[in-house]
Nucleic acid binder design. Structure first.
Lengths: 203, 203
DNA sequence: GATGGCATGTAAAGGGTTACATGATTAG
DNA sequence: CTAATCATGTAACCCTTTACATGCCATC
């Protein structure tokens, strides 16, 4: 049986490039360096994708080799030099092709939910502690997203902004992030209170 | 040069076995075969983790070798034989250790959000189509979860069930899944309508 | 005799996480 | 002098995904 293999193309034919399109989408907003992207994709800030710096530097290199982004060196005297990247026409075409293909719903995979699933047979105390901590983290993200939303829409009301601005994509994804974290917060607080009421723990 | 390392190492012999604990948590509810687990972890059913059958068979083999679960052969005459697995005391201890370690928030990684992020520079029509399709999928999952919740609580009201049952973990995670899908549905519908209003498309 | 559900895997490729590594400049 | 921020990577390992593979039984 001859194994049919794809020549592991560095070029554009790939089907499931995960990070690739997220980076392209962010770079549509403007020029960024790997370091700046790392902050945008940081777990405590990202509203639609998460990645660590190492991933981003590797992906930027691949994207540049594939001609989907172009980098330019920026000499700085007060700090280390950096390279800023922009999306090329080929990169925009790649994004358009990506958006035309039906996407699969993302997997839910959350360690905290695994713990809650098993909580009937475990000591609830550490689970309660983690739920309460997570509720706090979620609340902080809600506030962060609210600040980001205010900044994005400037002086306009949300309604006006969404009707007239030509850059609403980041606003819409930020709104989704806000809703998710708000739900997360409410659920964590509610479950923590419930578990506390059932099996009171000191502290 | 001796180790110059960050003080942020968590210390606990940190292997990040991802699926492992999810499987253990589900097997706490009772005996299941790989095939049955595959249905529970299926994308269209799972409320807190998602995995394909191949992953599960591999993980079950590893868990059994590690002594965290025990399998027993069940001879069937009307259909192929199967192996049912249960959690061993060592497996329960592993879960308890897992629950005691602070968990990190899960990454948000959603192709559809990447498309919305970039929608200002793309043809909105396919994005709108996908948002509407996703809203329908989310609505179906909400209904599925509602049926599951009713089944889990039986004749009891939710309040009574949550106060008195000794198996509320699966119910709580299912509630989280329901909330997530409901949010998803509302956001997708809202964004689709907004994009339609801004750039009317035929159809 | 074809389809569909039950039941269990192997192999290869792709993507993500962790650990390790380097070096500049500014603020305290 | 120390820490923090800026800036960029490499390497190894682990996890996930996709494709391939097998075989039984019941029903239509």
């Amino acid at each position: 049986m001859p194994a049919r293999r794809h020549p592991s193309s560095l070029g554009v034919g790939g089907l499931t490039m995960a990070l690739r399109h997220a980076v392209l989408a962010v770079l549509l907003d403007g020029e960024y360096s790997g370091y700046q992207l790392a902050k945008i994709f940081d777990v405590s800030f990202s509203n639609f994708w998460y990645a660590v710096p190492q991933q981003l530097y590797a992906e930027l290199a691949k994207l540049e080799r594939a001609g989907l982004i172009a980098g330019r060196q920026v000499i700085q005297h007060d700090r280390p030099n950096k390279r800023l990247f922009t999306v090329t026409p080929a990169g925009l075409a790649e994004l358009a092709a990506f958006a035309a293909v039906p996407s699969k719903p993302s997997s839910i995979r959350e360690d905290l939910l695994v713990m809650v699933q098993a909580v009937d047979r475990l000591d609830p105390a550490p689970v309660i502690a983690q739920l309460e901590e997570r509720a706090g983290i979620a609340a902080a993200k809600v506030e962060l997203f609210d600040r980001t939303l205010r900044q994005l829409r400037g002086d306009l009301t949300e309604e006006t902004f969404l009707r007239e601005s030509d850059q609403i994509g980041p606003y819409l994804t930020c709104l989704r992030g806000r809703r998710f974290e708000q739900e997360n917060r409410e659920w964590c607080e509610w479950v923590a209170a419930l578990l506390r009421a059932r099996a009171p723990v000191p502290g």
